[in-house]
Amino acid sequence: MKKRICKSTLWTVGPLLAVCVGACASTPTPQELNDARSAYLRAQQPDRAAMRFKPDQVHEAKVALDKAEASFRDDPKDQKTRDLAYIAQRKAEIAEASGANEEARAQLAQAEQAAKQATKGQLAAAGEMLASASQRLANTQQQLEAEKKAHAEADARAKEAMNKLAAAGSKVSEESRGTVITMSGQVLFASGKDVLLPGAQEKLSQVADALKDQTDHRILVEGHTDSQGSDASNQALSERRAQAVAAFLVSRGVPQSQIRAEGIGEARPVADNGSAEGRANNRRVEIVVQPVEKR
C-alpha cells in the first residue's frame, strides 16, 4: 500500500512541477498584462490628471495590476492572469478618465467664477454709466432751466428796452420779420449825406443800449430813400447810410457778429412819394431785431 501511494504521488507532482518550471521559463507575457502595465505607468505619472485628482483610483489600479502580476508568476498560462490584467488595465483607464473629469470640473468652476466676475464688472460699469447719464440729464435739465430763465429775462429786457425806445419817441412796431425800429432820415442825416447828425447819435445810443443785451437776436439795418434821384444813387446812398448806422451801433457795444447792413434804395416805400410828407416818411432807416431760430 505504501509503495502504491508513493508512486501515485510522484506521478501527480512530478509532471506538474516540470510543467510549471518549463512554463515559467518560456511563456511570453500575455498582451493584456503588457497593456495593463503601460496603462498603469501612464496613469501614475504625477503630472497627469489621474494622479493629481484621483490618486485613490490609481492605487486601485496598482492593486489590480499586482494581482495580475501575482497570477502571472503563479501560472502564466492561466486565463485568470489575462482577466486580472484586463481588469487592471480598465482600472487605470478609469482613473485617467475620472481625473480628466475632475480637471474639467475645476476648469468649469473657474470659468463660472470668471463669468460671474465679468458679469459683475459689467453690471458695475453699466451702473456707473447709468449714474453718469442721469447726472448728465440732470445737468442738461438745469442748463435748460437756466437758459429758459435767461431767455425770459432777455425777452423782458428787450421788451423793456423797446418800451423805453417807444417812450423816447422812436417808432417801434412788431412785424412778422421781428421788432422794427423806424428812424426818420431827417433826424439821422443831412440831405444826400451819409454822416450821422449830432442829434441822431443820441437817439441811436438809446437804440444801441436797448440792443446790446439782445445777444440772441440778429439785427438788420436797412436804409431806405424816397424816389427822387436815380435808382442807383438812391441804392448806394441807402447802403452807405445803413452801414453808418450799423457802425455806430457797433461802436456803442452791439456785437459786430449780430449786425448786418443792407441798402434797399427806393424799392420799399411806406408812403406816397408824390407828397413832401410822404417822401419824408420814406426816407428812413429801419432796424429790424430778429429773434434767432429757437433750438
Partner: peptide, 17 residues
C-alpha cells in the same frame, strides 16, 4: 461611465469659457 462623464464636463467647461 467615467469616459462619458469626463466628456460631458469638458463640453460644459468649454461652453462656460
Amino acid at each position: 461611465l467615467a469616459l462619458s462623464r469626463a466628456e460631458d464636463t469638458k463640453a460644459k467647461a468649454s461652453k462656460a469659457l
